[in-house]
């Protein structure tokens, strides 16, 4: 087994081996993991969860794709500049608390309200969600960034 793998690698001149199972499964699992990460993120409003765990899970979904394919394919699948994601995340995390100055309250004071939506009924709107989006994006992008950096170093 090991021998044949080595053989194909040298013959085709590529390091990434073509693993059909992993690639197929990861396409499916990716969506499940991403959905779970969103679920965790929104659950964090009242129950355990939140931006940090959600962000880590989202990053792990992307890392799964990264393992199954390679960096180029991942860039083709998701043409997002992760540095920009990181920056937007930081901006949300720092900007939303600062905006509370507009309400005349100290830094980090959150504003919240309840609105009536036709189908769902009463929904709580909270500025902490926006802050948490910032955390989510920052954590996801940073973790991915580090993994990519470590992965690149091998070549």
């Amino acid at each position: 087994m090991k021998h044949t793998l080595k053989k194909t690698e040298t013959e085709k001149g590529q390091k990434q081996m073509n693993d059909v199972f992993l690639q197929f499964v990861s396409k499916v699992v990716f969506f499940i993991v991403i959905m779970f990460s969103f679920n965790l993120f929104f659950a964090g409003h009242y129950t355990p969860g939140g931006g940090f765990v959600g962000g880590l899970l989202a990053a792990s979904a992307l890392i799964l794709l990264l393992i199954a394919y390679d960096k180029k394919t991942l860039q083709k699948m998701l043409p997002i500049d992760f540095r920009m994601v990181l920056t937007v995340g930081l901006l949300f995390a720092a900007g939303i608390p600062t905006l509370s100055f507009l309400f005349g309250t100290p830094f980090f004071t959150h504003q919240h309200t309840y609105i009536e939506v036709p189908v769902f009924g009463e929904i709580a709107l909270h500025s902490a969600v926006l802050f948490d989006i910032g955390v989510f994006l920052t954590v996801a992008a940073t973790s991915l960034f580090i993994i990519v950096l470590v992965g690149e170093a091998e070549n």
């Binding site: 920056t87 901006l91 720092a94 900007g95 600062t98 100290p106 830094f107």
Partner: peptide, 26 residues
């Protein structure tokens, strides 16, 4: 109002300028 904003300025100014520089890119 000043007590709300002023003590935070030394922390927020560098942080936001860092974020703006990240936006600007290389």
């Amino acid at each position: 109002m000043t007590t709300n904003i002023l003590p935070l300025l030394p922390i927020m100014i560098p942080f936001f300028s860092g974020i703006i520089m990240l936006f600007v890119g290389k």
